[in-house]
Simulated assay, not measured.
Amino acid sequence: MSSQKESTTRTLVVALLVCLVCSVFVAGAAVALKPTQVDNRLLDKQRSILAIAGLGDPSMSSAQVKEMFNGTISAKLVDLQTGKFSDAKDPVTFDPLKASKDPQTSSALPGSQDIASIKRLEHYSTVYVVEKDGELDTLILPVRGYGLWSTLYGFIAVKGDLNTVVGMGFYQHGETPGLGGEVDNPKWKGQWPGKTLFDDSGKLAVQVVKGGVDPQSPRAEHQVDGLAGATLTSNGVDHLLKFWLGQNGFGPFIANLRAGEA
């Protein structure tokens, strides 16, 4: 074998060994860091829930977030098919998003019902409640739906009257910064507290409107300004709220909870 061939072979072997060693290190790091990544995602979600529910302070440490969340908020499992609480699964460890991808634990949504473009609806979901003196003080519901470029994942919190909004926001999305990404803008999120979900007849009335809300409109108490330059994202937020608060989402659960039958 010529020296040139030997040199080429040696180079390829060395490159292969380097790639192999690097892949082992990368795989090992990924496995070692996975628990930390899972814990950080949970922490971000807990921080988001506390903020949307008007609890805590954004500057809280990780330990403070966990302490406040565990001491203030309770997770409960809801059967979306019956609209009632369930003990079929552990609400703390149950993952509704994972369940929504499994045909055994979810159902496909026909196009006429899938206004939020989520494709499949899990049979169970986890909601979060804050109680004071044994009474419901705040109900926090998970919501999700497609915007322009991505699925938006968030929560809406309502007072114990099951009508008045405490807060609404998203903890994960891939919308365009400066446009659809303005769902993260504190000014826009600040419009939600005090809005009401249902009108006097009990009909779902909450709405994200194109342009600005007319303060003189009798429906202004149900409406929030659309995002400037982000019509499709605004429509997505409007659609996901109508889905999750409607009859195919948490609507029956809210009705049962209001009637004391959940």
Results as ranks from 00 to 15, higher is better:
Asp225Gln: 05
Asp184Glu: 07
Glu135Pro: 07
Leu139Glu: 12
Ala99Asp: 07
Asp137Met: 09
Pro103Arg: 09
Ser125His: 11
Pro142Glu: 11
Glu122Cys: 11
His123Pro: 02
Lys210Asn: 07
Lys203Glu: 11
Val206Asn: 01
Ser112Met: 07
Ala228Trp: 06
Tyr146Glu: 11
Val208Ile: 09
Pro142Tyr: 08
Ile140Pro: 09
Val127Leu: 12
Leu152Gly: 08
Asp90His: 12
Asp200Ala: 10
Thr176Ile: 01
Asp87Trp: 12
Leu148Glu: 10
Gly202Cys: 03
Pro110Lys: 14
Asp137Ala: 14
Glu131Pro: 10
Phe155Ala: 14
Val165Glu: 05
Val158Ile: 03
Val92Asp: 15
Ile156Ser: 10
Asp200Trp: 00
Thr164Met: 08
Gly167Leu: 05
Lys210Glu: 10
Gln172Phe: 00
Glu221Leu: 04
Tyr153Lys: 11
Gly202Met: 02
Pro103Thr: 12
Gly147Trp: 10
Val166Ser: 08
Leu227Phe: 04
Pro110Val: 09
Pro110Ile: 12
Val208Ala: 05
Val158Met: 13
Phe85Pro: 10
Tyr146Gln: 14
Phe170Leu: 01
Gly134Gln: 15
Val143Gly: 14
Asp114Asn: 11
Glu175Asn: 06
Leu136Thr: 06
Ala220Leu: 03
Pro215Ile: 00
Ala205His: 02
Arg120Gly: 05
Val208Asn: 00
Trp192Lys: 05
Lys89Pro: 08
Pro218Ala: 05
Gln223Met: 04
Pro177Gly: 04
Gly211Gln: 00
Asp137Tyr: 09
Ser107Lys: 14
Leu227Lys: 00
Asp214Asn: 09
Gln207Asn: 08
Val158Asp: 03
Asp95Tyr: 15
His173Ala: 01
Leu162Lys: 02
Lys195Arg: 13
Gln104Asn: 15
Ile140Lys: 07
Gly174Arg: 05
Ile118Leu: 09
Gly194Met: 09
Asp102Thr: 15
Asp161Ser: 02
Ser217Pro: 00
Gln172Pro: 01
Pro215Trp: 03
Leu227Asn: 01
Val183Gly: 00
Pro215Ala: 04
Glu122Tyr: 02
Gly147Tyr: 06
Glu175Thr: 01
Gly174Leu: 02
Ser86His: 08
Leu121Ala: 11
Val224Leu: 01
Leu197Thr: 06
Glu131Phe: 11
Val130Cys: 11
Ser125Asn: 15
Gly174Asp: 02
Ser107His: 10
Asp133Val: 04
Val165Cys: 07
Tyr128Asn: 11
Leu204Ala: 08
Glu175Trp: 05
Tyr128Asp: 07
Thr126Glu: 08
Ser107Arg: 13
Ala220Asn: 01
Gly212Tyr: 04
Lys189Gln: 14
Pro103Glu: 13
Leu197Arg: 04
Ser106Asp: 05
